[in-house]
């Protein structure tokens, strides 16, 4: 690592997962434009490793766009330009030599609406390991599937019907399946884009508990419009408004003693 924290990308192959890293990602002056419209405006922040960082803010504030920058999902969208830099483990992920496809295999993502593949439960989880050649033998694959499903707290419920279609699961189960699918390829960061917005309160509670467990081994970024959820699950909270990062700090501070008026207004429900 050089002074600037930038690592030579030619050695990029797998993000580190060593325990002694404190800062997982450094975001500097990040701006995102759709055509001319500015969706994220000059955001800088550091993400700590093995912590949950929550992004809150009114809808349309750019929080989803922001986390989609971390696995370069915005690249798929035409006319979307990203400025500034994001360093993950010291790698500049927007460097032209970084293959965003390879990057995404290191940074998992869970979406707003559960989106299991219309295949069997087993195939859903096995897709990633197969794709990346992580497991080639049936036995290894079985182990990974079981392990991932267990970590996602789903194994007990589905162990007898692994070959049934995933579409038959309930919404909460589907979302946990998506989480299992994500951790099946052991990513270094998990991005969650309002993972509970389509779920009922009970399923939400299960997922939140799951997040609590996952943060022991993963760095998690979660977008939520549910402030209680942010307060419950996260260590750090970032408040976005109109594409700008208004305030970023310890969750406790944000919710009890925010620095900015806007933050206070939002968390007390004056607008949003």
């Amino acid at each position: 690592m050089t002074d600037t924290g930038i690592v030579n990308i030619s050695s990029f192959n797998k993000l580190k997962k060593s325990k002694n890293i404190k800062i997982k990602a450094i975001i500097k002056n990040l701006s995102v434009f759709y055509s001319d419209k500015c969706a994220v405006d000059n955001v800088s922040m550091n993400i700590n490793a093995r912590e949950v960082t929550a992004m809150i803010g009114p809808s349309g504030c750019g929080k989803s766009t922001f986390i989609r920058c971390l696995n370069r999902m915005n690249d798929v969208i035409e006319n979307c330009t990203v400025k500034g830099s994001i360093l993950i483990d010291g790698y500049d992920i927007y460097h032209p030599k970084i293959d965003e496809v390879k990057l995404r295999s290191q940074i998992g993502m869970v979406f707003q609406k559960p989106n299991p593949f219309p295949k069997s439960i087993y195939d859903n989880v096995a897709y990633g390991p197969r794709l990346h050649g992580i497991a080639t033998k049936k036995n290894d694959l079985d182990n990974i599937v079981e392990e991932s499903l267990t970590k996602a707290g789903l194994f007990k419920e589905v162990k007898d019907r692994l070959n049934d279609t995933a579409i038959g699961l309930s919404g909460g189960q589907q979302q946990r399946l998506c989480i299992a699918r994500t951790i099946s390829i052991s990513p270094s960061i998990i991005l969650m884009d309002e993972p509970c917005s389509a779920l009922d309160p009970i399923a939400t509670a299960v997922i939140e508990e799951l997040i609590e467990n996952l943060k022991k081994s993963y760095t998690i970024l979660i977008v939520t419009h549910n402030m209680q959820q942010a307060a419950r699950v996260s260590e750090k909270t970032a408040f976005f408004h109109l594409g700008k990062l208004i305030e970023f700090g310890d969750t406790k501070t944000i919710f009890t003693n925010p620095r900015e008026k806007q933050t206070l207004g939002y968390i007390t429900g004056r607008y949003g």
């Binding site: 999902m73 798929v76 990057l103 995404r104 998992g108 979406f111 989106n115 897709y127 990633g128 994500t182």
Partner: peptide, 8 residues
Amino acid sequence: QGALALGA
């Protein structure tokens, strides 16, 4: 998107 997020 689900597939893309898995690194496909």
